[in-house]
């Protein structure tokens, strides 16, 4: 295995984060803080506790997921789309490096960024509300799995996209609505029965529910189901990436 190449891609991608620190880290932290100000302090003070947790604390896992999902997807998508767009992908294709190693480099960097942002948001949230983490191990496991699986998803998106519009389409029009409708700011038990059933078709529900369980010990769906759904999503993404590299879809002619 060409680990030197994986390391080179990883460091190269991470250095992009530090070069664009304001956009990469400060911006999601600022927008999350605004969510706390609006939903936590202004609106949250008028809402009763949800599942025995104050509303401000209740939305923390959902807010982290909202940012982590969009950041992991966007970072990985941009990471591989940019070399395609400017033509430097020739270097990756002509280097003695396997497709698995390319994925490890790009997805590893995107997942690290998303993880770092998730943890920074958690720290930021601690300034606004009291946070308890009932299952720290599972909290980290959920977070890491989500970062990796959505970075893989972003990588697929970056390969598929043929222009910047397509690149932004999925995070804006798919991920964000799914997260908002996936119980980020409410418990799905608060919905009418029909909508509770409809919501179960939203895969993000399982992520947020499981992640919230790791904080407060309460979940909308069974924890085993949440883990299964993440594992399934991860497996599907890996399968698609394997197919992309086998066929050279939108990479090789």
């Amino acid at each position: 295995m060409n680990l030197q190449a994986v390391k080179s891609i990883y460091i190269f991608e991470m250095s992009r984060t530090f070069r664009t620190l304001l956009q990469s880290i400060v911006s999601p932290v600022l927008s999350t803080s605004l969510y706390f100000v609006v939903f936590g302090a202004a609106i949250g003070s008028r809402i009763q506790e949800v599942d025995g947790v104050s509303y401000g604390a209740f939305i923390v896992p959902g807010l982290i997921m909202l940012t982590v999902l969009t950041q992991a997807t966007s970072n990985a998508a941009f990471g591989i789309y940019f070399p395609k767009f400017i033509g430097t992908i020739y270097e990756l294709l002509s280097a003695p490096i396997s497709f698995l190693e390319i994925v490890m480099g790009y997805v590893g960097a995107a997942a690290t960024k998303a993880l770092a942002i998730g943890l920074i948001i958690l720290l930021t949230a601690a300034f606004f509300v009291d946070i308890q983490i009932a299952h720290p191990f599972w909290m980290l496991t959920f977070l890491v799995l989500t970062c990796v699986s959505f970075s893989l998803f972003g990588f697929i998106l970056g390969i598929w996209a043929q222009n910047f519009e397509q690149l932004q389409l999925v995070p804006l029009l798919v991920i964000t609505p799914l997260v908002f409708l996936g119980g980020s700011f409410y418990s799905i038990s608060m919905l009418p029965p029909l909508w509770q059933n409809v919501t179960l078709f939203n895969p993000v529900v399982y992520l947020i529910s499981g992640f919230r369980w790791s904080f407060y010990g309460t979940a909308d769906v069974a924890i085993g189901l949440s883990i299964t759904m993440i594992a399934l999503f991860l497996a599907i993404c890996l399968g698609i990436i394997w197919w992309i590299f086998k066929t050279g879809y939108r990479i090789k002619t």
Partner: peptide
């Protein structure tokens, strides 16, 4: 990559080749 530094982009290529 337009914003990369010369030394770093050349070193990156070396790394890609293991």
């Amino acid at each position: 990559e337009p914003f990369e530094k010369v030394f770093r982009t050349v070193s990156f290529s070396r790394g890609l080749f293991g």
